[in-house]
Design a binder for these strands. Sequence first.
DNA 1: TTTGCTCCTGCCGGAAAGTGTCAGCAGGGG
DNA 2: CCCCTGCTGACACTTTCCGGCAGGAGCAAA
Lengths: 236, 236
Amino acid sequence: MARTDRLMRLMDTLRRLPQPVTAARLAEESGVSLRQLYRDIATLRAGGALIDGAAGVGYTLTEDKALPPQSFSRLEIEALMLAQSGLEQIGDATLIEAGRNAMARIVATLPDGQARQAMHTVLRSWRQKDVRPPVRVDLDLLREACWQEFSLSITYRDLQDRVSTREIWPLGMSYAEDTLLLLAHCRLRMDYRHFHVSRIEAMTRGPESFRPKRVSLLREYVAGRRQSRPGSSSGS
Amino acid sequence: MARTDRLMRLMDTLRRLPQPVTAARLAEESGVSLRQLYRDIATLRAGGALIDGAAGVGYTLTEDKALPPQSFSRLEIEALMLAQSGLEQIGDATLIEAGRNAMARIVATLPDGQARQAMHTVLRSWRQKDVRPPVRVDLDLLREACWQEFSLSITYRDLQDRVSTREIWPLGMSYAEDTLLLLAHCRLRMDYRHFHVSRIEAMTRGPESFRPKRVSLLREYVAGRRQSRPGSSSGS
DNA sequence: TTTGCTCCTGCCGGAAAGTGTCAGCAGGGG
DNA sequence: CCCCTGCTGACACTTTCCGGCAGGAGCAAA
């Protein structure tokens, strides 16, 4: 159902972008024609969202029919903002976008504009330039595999530069300072391994779908042994 | 939109009727053909709802999904979790605590099992150990000053080790990789300055309270000189 | 006022999705 | 074997969605 999904993303975009925002901009973000954008706006309004549209200016999201009003203290807001700021340094594009949407949604539920000022409290968060090696594979596919629990076939170059093709059950990702790690159960070695995502040269979706029951057991097992440092244990 | 509405009602029906429920019954409730009912079930499942279907028995709603507007998507939860994980590396104790509180509150609003599973998606976020110099002053007071917009009297040791006492208007904090900075308007120099918080030797609350209006102007000014804004005024 | 920008609406035609009917397969329990 | 039920594919029909075009109206700056 593409339409409903697009309408949701349109709401997210309205929360995220600085207001007022023109219909042309929203149409571009939605990947839809200007005419259709106006229709989508009308649909949202019919659904209860209060979107103020002023000719010559743009749209302003007046009121949100959003989630249950969660009240956060100013300190909590600041913490969330700083966290998002940090996320923008270590996350990938998809995750950053999701974080911004989440933040915008949280802010939208706050009592009136005074909370929006909170967004300006944390000015910036620097970090030395990203030295992490580039990732060649599709992170979205990888994330999807972790979540929906289907196996992956990967071509992996280990730390000794030996290339192998394995089938793995992806369990979760670990974001380290200088590298992005993937915890998975390697069907080849029949053991849990950390893979450097940057060293995965190719990745295709496998047919196998490991079962939720099995996965929860695996996760508990992993949680029990998670004290070990992962950086040097991959490969071999 | 009729279809989306029907899907909502189907979820409601699933919650309402004693389980298991046969597809024929659901089709009758929805006022739709059996074939279409199966399609609708597939749509709900694709959207994230966990509906268990057993041949000869019927449907059982395992887990709710809180369709479009409410709550956060799985990706957004993952982003928030990673952000919090990053926050724990760069923030101070007060902020970390606040962040955990906020996260707990957000997670509490999520449909049960989904939240727990989501928290395990991001396994960990490492970072090299903190090398930032220690902060002598009360960060909470500093934060409060930024927020409530009252002036501060600080004893500052600059990079040339010269000690001076100044009155400042604190505007916001910047979290850098190796140091914590305070952006403020220095009443002594009458200019905007970055202070290293670790070099502030003493700090007391000043009497002055600069006005919100003035502050917003200052913030705009700061924002204007921080990032180059392309052509806001194109004169003819 | 004029100019420029923008929101907003109606209409048309092609494209896409939704829907019902029919058929068949799979799996569990008598 | 049977019946019950979930599940999927194929086909045709209907609905809606969507882009492009044209025009009207409101706001702001020149």
